[in-house]
């Protein structure tokens, strides 16, 4: 264990130097993590992850570029024990995208919970869209509910991202959420945004078909095809509907 963490200290130190040194630090980190992350090396992995988390929260020790790299690596090797460190980085404007990406990569319910909590508390349009996108890749308790709340955002771009994330969920009720975004005139959508949401409805139906929920898929697609005036999503909806019929 000593060797692994010694190598880690040297790697982290390199991240504080020139771009060439930074590269060397990245390479050294990769080697340390490859060894520590091997199956059966749980204690070593935990130690490396713990030290990376320390480096992330210890703002004075490493420059921002190094801390971003540390956050990124925590996404690869970190576990639930490192989530508090990543959560603390979410409130740092310069670190939060890297921390969000790390949580996106950690596949545990605790990481999902951290993303949901962030979606309720944190601001910044593009950042929130990143949170929404990460939630869209996940399932589990609270994901659809959190996305539903974000669907009420006053920001149209966030709403569109929510619609697209909902479409990944294979939950038939997602169509109502997307329709509510489309029909809420208090937050007007550009034609491109409206088009994105129409496509999101088709994607939801296509995903439902892929999950064996043909009746729900058909209902959504027929609803799209019945809309007037004709939308650009309709030819695609017709094509997907044909796939649904073939799979029935």
């Amino acid at each position: 264990m000593q060797n692994a963490t010694e190598g880690l200290d040297a790697a982290l130190e390199k991240l504080t130097g020139s771009q060439e040194d930074f590269y060397k630090g990245q390479l050294a980190l990769t080697r340390v993590m490859g060894e520590a992350g091997a199956p059966g090396n749980d204690a070593k992995r935990a130690e490396v992850a713990r030290k990376l988390a320390e480096g992330l929260v210890n703002g004075g020790k490493y420059p921002i570029a190094a801390r971003r790299e540390i956050a990124r690596r925590l996404g690869e090797i970190g576990g639930d024990s490192e989530i508090p460190a990543l959560q603390s980085a979410l409130v740092d404007l310069e670190l939060r995208e890297s921390a969000r990406g790390a949580l996106d990569r950690i596949p545990t319910p605790a990481a999902t919970a951290a993303l949901i909590q962030a979606s309720k508390q944190l601001l910044g349009d593009r950042f929130v869209i990143g949170i929404v996108n990460a939630l869209g890749q996940r399932t589990g308790e609270g994901v659809v509910a959190a996305l539903s709340e974000l669907a009420k955002s006053p920001n149209a771009e966030i709403r569109v991202a929510v619609g697209e994330a909902i479409s990944q969920q294979s939950d038939p009720s997602g169509d109502e959420i997307i329709l509510a975004i489309i029909n809420d005139k208090s937050v007007p959508l550009t034609p491109q945004q409206a088009g994105s949401l129409a496509k999101a409805r088709v994607r939801l139906a296509a995903n439902l078909n892929g999950k064996g929920k043909q009746a729900d898929a058909k209902r959504i697609l027929q609803s799209i095809l019945a809309e007037r005036p004709i939308s650009m999503a309709q030819p695609v909806a017709e094509r997907v509907l044909e796939r649904v019929r073939l799979s029935c």
């Binding site: 993590m33 992350g37 090797i77 969000r100 990569r105 996108n133």
Partner: peptide, 19 residues
Amino acid sequence: VNDELASRLVRKPMRAPWQ
């Protein structure tokens, strides 16, 4: 098979707003 770190490398998070 049974390699958590390797499994995480099958995807990369995308920079917002892309997904």
